[in-house]
Write a protein that binds this DNA or RNA. Structure first.
Lengths: 191, 191
DNA sequence: GGTTTTTGATTGACTCGTCAATCAATAAAA
DNA sequence: TTTTATTGATTGACGAGTCAATCAAAAACC
């Protein structure tokens, strides 16, 4: 069986399975066995590759942040003009890849994890800083010095809408969510 | 020892201890034994009064919601005029009783719990509905038909700022948080 | 008032299950 | 044969929930 070079494949499978499992369970209270089973391997192998449960979760978290980050960058290169850049940042957060029930559940639980894990805390802080920085950068040409404060509010609003969706059990609607935030944006920048 | 009427005292102590313990641990991953110990009794007694771990958490949740609800009502009777009412609702959410590290941690974890517990889900839905309804009611005289949509955004913003504080490990600042939301309110209603 | 009975309060010890982590062993490349 | 892949079995810890037993106030009774 040992086809060489299994490691990256196994790791990816475990990360994917972790997100799915956390999404299903709704909490971080999922056993390594279950994750491993979903990923099609034994729990021992999961430990072999990741060293421990925390490492598995952190890897899953890094992955969601990486995907999100990539999506934002991708959207930004397509945007022309500051206003369009800000909208791109907003829409990226509510894209079909990020704004899914299981991913949202994972985010929520990462917030819980960040209260006890330094590494999780660090990662989420990076995300928040980046979101704020991106928004501020896009807003500055539009509203100058107010950009910092407005960016903070927009970021909080985005997170808040995320949180609502985490509670909602209905299907999520990224377009509707984006529209909400953009409406607030319009008010903040005066149309 | 059986001084009659211990039950309500014990229950209250357990609820308080639960919030504190969840705040310390940062997650719902706290054993009944620890909660009971902090409340000054055996774990068996905790089970005796509440029946199970979930019941204890739900009671703690109901308590925080009750306190929050009372505070909002109290602030509303003091307010004169719609604008003042809306501000009162906002400030109540960030009051010293509600905007505390352990309480915020509890809220966050209740959101996680709501993904698996129907009763927790119900309670949080009640909170969200009530918050939205209160805001909408206060906003209607100010902006008419737009009140519903704006209330939704304000509610999400409040939750979002809460979430930020859940991540922050510094001391929380309710006044600053209120100011943020009120600034957004000003923009929404046009000064 | 004194005795007995009842009942709420309380706990230590125990059961049962779960889970993270480890290890020894096997199999297939290189 | 050395390295990589892989797993079944095992261990050690921990936690929820149960139970039988104890303790002491209070109520009922004489």
């Amino acid at each position: 069986m040992p086809k060489l070079g299994m490691e990256p494949i196994r790791r990816a499978a475990l990360v994917k399975a972790t997100i799915a499992e956390v999404g299903d369970a709704g909490s971080l209270d999922v056993s390594v066995s279950r994750i491993a089973k979903r990923a099609g391997m034994s729990s021992a192998l999961a430990h072999h590759y990741f060293g421990g449960k925390d490492q598995i979760f952190l890897a899953a978290m890094r992955h969601t942040l990486t995907v999100y980050g990539a999506e934002v960058r991708g959207a930004l290169v397509m945007a022309d003009g500051p206003r369009s850049r800000v909208e791109a940042i907003i829409r990226a957060g509510f894209s079909n890849t990020n704004f899914r029930a299981d991913v949202i559940a994972a985010w929520l639980n990462f917030y819980v994890m960040a209260r006890t894990s330094d590494e999780a805390h660090r990662l989420l802080t990076v995300y928040q800083k980046r979101l704020h920085s991106n928004l501020q950068h896009g807003l500055r040409p539009l509203i100058g010095a107010r950009a910092g404060a407005v960016a903070a509010r927009m970021a909080a609003l985005i997170d808040g809408i995320y949180l609502r969706q985490a509670l909602s059990r209905d299907a999520v609607d990224g377009a509707e969510a984006s529209a909400q935030v953009i409406a607030a944006l319009d008010k903040e920048i005066g149309q």
